[in-house]
Simulated scan of single mutants.
Amino acid sequence: MYLTNIKVMKRIFKFVEKYFFIIILIAVIIAIIIPNSFNWVMEEFMGINVINVLLGVILFGMGTTLKIEHFVNVFKRPKEILLGVSAQYLLMPLIAFAIASLFSLNEALTVGLVLVGTVPGGTASDVITFLAKGDVALSVSLTAVSTVISPILTPIITLLLIGNTIAFNPVDMFISIVQIVIIPIALGLFLNYKFPDFCEKLKDFLPTLSSIVIAIIVAGVIGVNKEAIISSSLVVIAVIVLQYFIAMLLGFAVGYLSGMKRKQMITIAIELAFQNSGLSTSLAKTHFPALTLATVPGALYSVWQNFAGSILAYVFTKYYNDEE
């Protein structure tokens, strides 16, 4: 009976992992109908932002799935890793800033969109890459490397893009990213190193847990900013969709021009388009508290990238893959 229950749970978790955008859509609907239900996500507990704790849970889970070999891949596959990370921190920020300027977004939405562009790749990219039959090992390594160097690059690039017009402290942002990202990942890595068998069992459940936590974060942001989102929804949705598809197309272009095979091209495109939108939302809440709408682009980007990504994964699998 116990083994049967475990198998049933694994099937449920696998289903949720594959269709995790449904969980996010359900959370969004609840947040719109009952906006106060997720207010606690945007509040503080004992002086700590709840959203930062939730994000730490996701990144701790990510850490338990990583191994040293994911970082060693930098030396084994330098060309692909270098191209992927360079595109991540050069193209995505420029895309975000260009779109914000093109649409003449206000300060808050500009900050939010730029942060979506300057944060590292998200863990969802690994799931989508798997579903799209891309190069999962490359995806995991790109996510790991871009995440580890994010405390340095995210504040610097954000400062270069908006520092002249919107004041913030890049050193404080560096400290926040270390606390929110590096420490949880390091703890997860340590747990995986000491108890690999235990962490291997966790892999069946962690993607689903991450999906649920991301859904809660998204719902919290949308619930608090419901009226503002509704009043500016068309513009916000337009820039989010545009940012996503430009990133996807440029990812393919980078892969194609550098002579990569299809699996790697798919992986670079997905990695570039999929951002750690939860981190962008957290940074917006922590470092731009007066600009409440700055949290909105990250939340909506999370909804869109997971929804569109699931569809694109099906398209890639059916029409744009080869046997390699």
Rank of each mutant, 00 (worst) to 15 (best):
2 Y>G: 11
6 I>G: 07
13 F>N: 06
14 K>V: 06
17 E>A: 15
29 I>C: 06
29 I>M: 11
29 I>Y: 10
31 A>D: 01
33 I>A: 13
34 I>R: 12
42 M>D: 14
43 E>V: 06
49 N>D: 13
55 L>R: 08
56 G>V: 00
57 V>D: 00
58 I>F: 00
59 L>V: 04
60 F>T: 03
64 T>Y: 03
67 K>M: 05
73 N>V: 10
74 V>A: 13
75 F>L: 15
77 R>D: 15
84 G>Q: 11
85 V>K: 11
85 V>C: 14
88 Q>E: 04
89 Y>D: 02
91 L>P: 04
94 L>R: 00
99 I>N: 06
100 A>R: 06
104 S>E: 15
111 V>M: 04
112 G>P: 08
116 V>T: 06
118 T>G: 01
122 G>C: 00
123 T>C: 05
123 T>S: 15
126 D>V: 15
131 L>V: 07
135 D>W: 06
144 A>C: 05
146 S>Y: 08
146 S>T: 11
147 T>F: 02
151 P>S: 01
153 L>I: 12
155 P>D: 07
160 L>H: 01
167 A>E: 13
171 V>S: 12
174 F>A: 06
175 I>A: 14
176 S>A: 15
181 V>S: 01
184 P>G: 01
187 L>M: 09
190 F>N: 03
192 N>V: 02
192 N>A: 01
196 P>S: 10
199 C>Y: 00
200 E>C: 04
201 K>F: 03
204 D>R: 02
207 P>H: 08
208 T>Y: 03
212 I>E: 07
218 V>S: 03
221 V>D: 07
225 N>P: 07
229 I>F: 02
230 I>Q: 10
232 S>E: 14
236 V>L: 13
237 I>H: 07
237 I>D: 07
238 A>Y: 12
240 I>N: 12
243 Q>Y: 13
245 F>G: 14
247 A>N: 14
249 L>D: 02
249 L>V: 15
256 Y>P: 08
264 Q>L: 15
265 M>W: 10
267 T>G: 10
269 A>C: 08
273 A>W: 03
277 S>E: 07
278 G>A: 06
278 G>P: 07
279 L>A: 01
279 L>S: 08
281 T>V: 13
282 S>M: 12
283 L>I: 05
288 F>S: 02
293 L>E: 15
294 A>Y: 03
298 G>M: 09
299 A>R: 09
299 A>D: 07
299 A>Q: 09
301 Y>P: 05
308 A>E: 05
309 G>K: 02
314 Y>N: 13
314 Y>V: 13
316 F>L: 10
319 Y>V: 01
320 Y>C: 11
